[in-house]
Design a protein around this nucleic acid. Structure first.
Lengths: 341, 341
DNA sequence: GTGAAAGCGCTAACAA
DNA sequence: TTGTTAGCGCTTTCAC
């Protein structure tokens, strides 16, 4: 079928063992033998079989990376970060997209295990399943190193790299409160999800710190999508229920919210204020100076890869990394100059 | 080391062959045997080895997908499209990012071949190498099916799915000409690259159709990045050399150009007109009605996967798919109301 | 420095 | 319907 190591051995007049040594840059090979082998490999266009190699060795040099939303640049940047470190260490990475689909995630884990990957770096889907005992078991059954990114798993003790979401929203909300805002709407996701909880907590903590009671109607539950945020904001506009400020808790939510405001020609910060969590390159393009608490996704990817490598080499290092997002104040937090809409 | 098929055979009291049949859902297995095997698999937490399987069978069920820029949502959408079809057909996909780096691309091809993938769907990097004989040879040496996406390879005869870039720019430019524009700047990439050529040709063809001579100074060469377009546009602004209209030839170039215009408070279409090629979800967000010639990236991914599957099954179908982008007119093409800046 | 040979875990005839 | 067995292409002792 394919050219094999045996063909190379015959053609170059050495044994299979020697060919193997050359391929793997192992020591104890004479210059002469090496030359002959390399020549044969080139002439016969030999490509080693990853399967045969994988079967012989008992482990691969692959780490899997599983993300939920490939079209979100946030995850693209994470992949960039992971790749940087993996390249340095000579590890291959296998990228999988789950589309926020728990069934797909389970399938991906199965495949990754079949490929005997060294470890899996994963941002879990945010299904309701996150709470399911079964869901946690899915992770626990994986007896390979796992590094979580960005989203914790409730009730599960897994290492990972996270942003301090609570602190981020605390900062964002505090800034608004400091700017005299009292009516601040926050679009949230399912309150049961870990991904929502920390952020909402930060929001609440800020109010508490300022001794201002939280108005529950300002916490509006939707999904973590542009569309959801867009629809909700539009409803607020048409129902004339706009607050004096929004805090966006994810790049996609911010985007949906801003989209609706733009559509109705509601200016920031003249008509309403806005502070977002997480950036998008696109935000630069707006003719408003958006105040954002920014996450460094590339750095998250890098740290996740480093953590994984430490785990693989058995190093007893810190196993939970918490990254601090950085607030960049640009003016959109200022109290609306015009009357409230 | 790991639990193997043999362990399952012993535990369930059947032969390895029967276990193998169960795993592969092959026929001729009694209900009883199947039950026993399934039970053992579950209890022992058995995960088949992809390596052993791959070595025995002589082919994998994997197709590789290689893209140059993982943080560009355009490619994220392509992946979504490919995945949709691959899932239907039970094919696994391996995603690789080359970062527009030719060396990385070569490495990725090697890995993919080592994994004996059935085929590779790839958007080649746009290095100067695209012209290199050696570069084309890299593809020709791959003796597995290749499907190109979005970028042709000059001098190479490879199947693929492409957008009609020439037609897209012809439409965009014609629309501007029809709106009385004569001074239309187009930011291009390296003129030698296939990716640039079709688009510039469309631009020129439109001028010719309108019997208007092209002013060469309106073709400005840069890179296919936001930064490049941003800098060039900024220079045009500060040098007071703005045209009456821009045509953007990629989503990233449009973005960079728009960013500079925004920064200098140059409004569209009051001060300058703009027609772009390819959209970004983000463009929706602008408070301008951007006229765009839009590509359907998800569809491109789907078509590429279908083409690959046809090739794999030896079907004698069309081997080059050309997708027509759709122009959506929203008003930004109109001749500037205010005087030229 | 080099080679022989025994696996690695599975599939696919072929027998039964 | 089920089992036996010979590979698949490589790595890795262990001799030499």
């Amino acid at each position: 079928m394919h050219v094999t190591i045996k063909d190379i051995a015959v053609k170059s007049g050495v044994s299979m063992a020697t060919v193997s040594r050359v391929i793997n840059k192992a020591p104890h090979v004479s210059q002469k033998a090496e030359q002959k082998v390399l020549k044969a490999i080139d002439e016969l266009n030999y490509i080693p079989s990853a399967y045969a190699r994988g079967l012989s060795r008992h482990e691969s040099d692959i780490i899997g990376i599983v993300i939920p939303e490939i079209t979100n640049p946030f995850f693209g940047e994470i992949i960039t970060g992971v790749t940087q470190i993996a390249d340095e260490k000579g590890l291959n990475i296998l990228i999988f997209n789950t589309d926020e689909d728990a069934a797909k995630e389970a399938r991906v884990f199965q495949i990754l295990q079949e490929y005997r990957v060294r470890g899996i770096i994963v941002t879990p889907v945010t299904g309701i399943n996150t709470f399911d005992k079964d869901y946690v078991r899915l992770f626990e059954k994986l007896n390979i190193p796992i590094v979580l990114m960005d989203r914790r798993i409730k009730n599960g003790r897994f290492d990972g790299v996270f942003f301090d979401d609570r602190a981020a929203l605390y900062q964002a909300t505090s800034l608004l409160l400091e700017n005299e805002h009292r009516n601040i709407t926050i679009l949230t996701g399912n309150p049961k999800h870990v991904i929502t909880q920390g952020r909402v907590q930060g929001y609440r903590d800020a109010f508490e710190a300022y001794n201002v009671p939280v108005s529950e109607k300002n916490l509006i539950q939707g999904k973590f999508t542009i569309e959801s945020a867009y629809e909700i904001t539009k409803d607020l506009i048409t129902d004339k229920k706009l607050p004096t400020a929004f805090v966006g808790i994810s790049n996609m939510l911010s985007m949906g919210c801003l989209k609706a405001l733009y559509e109705y020609h509601i200016s920031i910060p003249e008509d309403i204020s806005f502070v977002g969590y997480d950036k998008l390159e696109f935000f630069d393009l707006l003719n408003i100076n958006l105040t954002l608490v920014e996450k460094d996704a590339v750095e998250m990817g890098r740290r996740a890869a480093m953590l994984m490598i430490d785990k693989l080499s058995g190093k007893n290092t810190q196993n939970r990394v918490v990254l601090m997002p950085e607030m960049v104040i640009r003016g959109s937090e200022q109290f609306p100059a015009r009357n409230q809409v």
